[in-house]
Design a protein around this nucleic acid. Sequence first.
DNA 1: TTTTAACCCGACTGAATTAGTATGCTTGTT
DNA 2: AACAAGCATACTAATTCAGTCGGGTTAAAA
Lengths: 146, 146
Amino acid sequence: MISQKSKYALRALLALAARPGGEPMLISEIAEQEVIPRKFLEQILLDLKRAGLVASRRGKAGGYLLLRRAETVTFGEVLRLIDGPLAPLPCLSKMAYRRCGDCANENACKLRKVFARVADATRDILDTTTLADVLQGGVKSLPVEI
Amino acid sequence: MISQKSKYALRALLALAARPGGEPMLISEIAEQEVIPRKFLEQILLDLKRAGLVASRRGKAGGYLLLRRAETVTFGEVLRLIDGPLAPLPCLSKMAYRRCGDCANENACKLRKVFARVADATRDILDTTTLADVLQGGVKSLPVEI
DNA sequence: TTTTAACCCGACTGAATTAGTATGCTTGTT
DNA sequence: AACAAGCATACTAATTCAGTCGGGTTAAAA
């Protein structure tokens, strides 16, 4: 299960990406439109800003805007930023590898072999799907049953 | 990330499945061999027993044994039992569906479309990989680079 | 130049989950 | 009857989750 915070982050980014002309959007505007607790959203946007995904303007008539093109922001990147590694085992994370603590001989580990496939499948989807893909409705879905 | 408890459960089941003749194995035997805290493992085995995956014999010369054939026990089943739903969103779980709380129009939800693909890919792997597959080393791995 | 409406930031909190421990009870074999 | 095995409940310390609170800073407008 992904966290509520990640869901909020993705929805906020989608809202910004959908903004025509890329003009700034108020926190409260996003919060209302996407039904996200206002103060919590503030935190999230700050995280996204520190990561360089969005920019902000302060003072009256301020707001947030997407700093990068929607085609370059992947779901994987956002999820890693908020929730940490995508991999189901720490020893399978490419970005934040950690040894598993238990299993001594890592490439003999039976579990690892199975979960490596899960990790790769997950990455294949999340690291190739961008905000733009979703906005255009261009998300490949499963074969439609005829 | 899957929980430590799930990892222990899977390793314990693999140990039982590997037992020749299917003779019972002591908790402490499993605990030592797989390096799992003994009392914690007791709890886990009880869960697996209540779910009908293993059986136990009490008294001296007791122990645990696998109740079902190793070919019929999938990783998905074990993970669901210990960790709960596999799906990344509650509204995507086939076994334990719950509405998402926020998004009103579920099949218009942009996030859902993306994570549905992740959920399906995950299920494809975990619900088709069994204890037997892993034991035989028969886990399909990624294409070997030549 | 003062006001006002934005964003910025750290601290706090209540509930839930995780990864176990502790303590004792029941059961079956010897 | 004794011993060794599993059965069962309660407890706990640490962490995470999903926010809330209270103020500080900045910049445009009146």
